[in-house]
Design a protein around this nucleic acid. Structure first.
Length: 301
DNA sequence: AAGAGGGTCAACCGCTACTAC
DNA sequence: CGTAGTAGCGGTTGACCCTCT
C-alpha cells in the first residue's frame, strides 16, 4: 500500500513503472545526480534519497538483476568481508553488476543461515560432555582402505604443530597441499568399516585449542567441510570425484566424500546433515582470518 | 490444502561525509 | 570557520515467495 507524508506528500513504498520511466529519463538527461531536483521540479513525489536508491539498486543498466551470486562471487564477498569488514559499497566495487544492497543482503542471509545451523548444532551436542561421533557414508566407488587415521590423540607440541598445518587445499595444479588452518578440530580416532568412515572426537581436548572451546561441540564436520567447500569449487576436482584412485592423492587426515554423501553427527542425537547444505553454508566466517590480505584494488586484474 | 518457517529482496531510516556558500 | 543541503553508506524492516510438514 502506498503511503504519503502528511506534510510534504512524499510518496513511499514500491515504485511503479511510470515512476521508473521518469527517473530513467531524468538520468538520461542530467546524469545520475541532482536527485533532489527531481522532486523540486515536480517530476516525482519521491525524495532525492529514494530516487538515488532506486537508480543505484534497480535501474542502473549494468546490474545483474535476478541472478544469484556465483560461487566465485560468494568467495569474493567472504574474502573481502574478512578484509574490509562490513564495507558493502567498497566490496560491491569488486563485483561488477552487484550493488552494496545486493552484497549486504547476501551476507545477511548467510549470517542467518550460519547462526541457525550453529544453534541447532550446539543444541544437539549440549547434552554430551566430551564425546561426539561423526559418520561419513562414502559412495561405493571410494576405496576407504586408502584412508588412514590421523594421529592427533595426544597433546604434544609436535601434534599441535601437525594440527596447525593439517588442512589440505588445492594448489594451481589441483593437487593437494597442506596449509595452515587453525580452526579445525581433529578426530581422536578415525576408523572405517565397509563404506562408512567414523570419526570420534574427544571434546575434552581443550588444552590444544582453548580459544576454540566453542567449536568443541558438534560442528567439527562443518569445519572440515569448509575445506571441501574450497576444493569442490574446482570443477575439474569435482569431475575427478568419480575416479576410483582419487583418494590416493590425499594425505591423512584428509578425505573427500562425494557430494552425495550423508554426514551424520551423533552427539547424543540423530542429526543428519546434508553434505550439499554444508558445502553451501561454509566456509565459516572466520575461515579467511589466517590468510594474507588481498592485494590492493589497484593490483587487481 | 493450509499454515509455519525461512530466505530473498526492495525500500526506508538514521547517521556521517562531503560540498558549496 | 560555520552552516545548510546533498550524497552516500550501513542497518533494519516488512512484503513476498518458496518449501516443508
Amino acid at each position: 500500500m502506498l503511503q504519503f507524508d502528511e506534510v510534504g506528500e512524499i510518496k513511499k513504498g514500491p515504485w511503479k513503472a511510470e515512476e521508473d520511466e521518469v527517473l530513467i529519463n531524468h538520468v538520461k538527461k542530467y546524469g545520475p545526480r541532482d536527485w533532489s531536483s527531481i522532486r523540486s521540479k515536480g517530476l516525482l513525489r519521491r525524495t532525492g534519497k529514494s530516487c538515488r536508491l532506486r537508480w543505484v539498486n534497480k535501474l542502473r543498466p549494468d546490474l545483474k538483476t535476478g541472478v544469484k551470486f556465483s560461487a566465485e562471487e560468494e568467495r569474493t564477498v567472504i574474502d573481502l568481508q574478512a578484509q574490509f569488514g562490513n564495507k558493502w559499497a567498497r566490496i560491491a566495487t569488486y563485483l561488477p553488476g552487484r550493488t552494496d544492497n545486493d552484497v549486504k543482503n547476501f551476507w545477511s542471509s548467510r549470517q542467518k543461515r550460519l547462526a541457525r545451523i550453529l544453534q541447532t548444532s550446539s543444541a544437539s551436542s549440549s547434552t554430551n560432555s566430551h564425546k561426539s561421533t561423526v559418520q561419513v557414508k562414502a559412495p561405493a566407488f571410494l576405496d576407504l582402505s586408502s584412508v588412514e587415521a590421523p594421529k592427533f590423540s595426544s597433546s604434544t607440541d609436535e601434534d599441535s604443530a601437525a594440527k596447525s598445518q593439517a588442512c589440505s587445499s588445492l594448489d594451481d595444479n589441483d593437487t593437494i597441499k597442506m596449509v595452515p588452518f587453525q580452526d579445525l578440530v581433529y578426530p581422536s580416532t578415525l576408523t572405517h568399516e565397509q563404506n562408512t568412515l567414523q570419526l570420534d572426537y574427544d571434546t575434552s581436548q581443550k588444552k590444544l585449542f582453548p580459544e576454540q572451546e566453542s567449536h568443541l561441540s558438534f560442528p567439527q564436520i562443518p569445519q572440515l567441510q569448509s575445506d571441501f567447500s574450497l576444493a569442490l569449487e574446482s570443477q575439474d576436482f569435482v569431475n575427478r570425484l568419480g575416479d576410483p584412485n582419487f583418494l590416493d592423492e590425499f594425505e591423512p587426515p584428509c578425505f573427500v566424500p562425494d557430494r552425495s554423501c550423508q554426514i551424520e553427527g551423533r552427539a547424543d542425537s540423530n542429526d543428519t546433515v546434508d553434505l550439499d547444505t554444508l558445502i553451501s553454508d561454509f566456509p565459516p566466517i572466520d575461515l579467511f582470518d589466517d590468510i594474507e590480505p588481498l592485494p590492493s584494488p589497484s593490483e587487481w586484474p
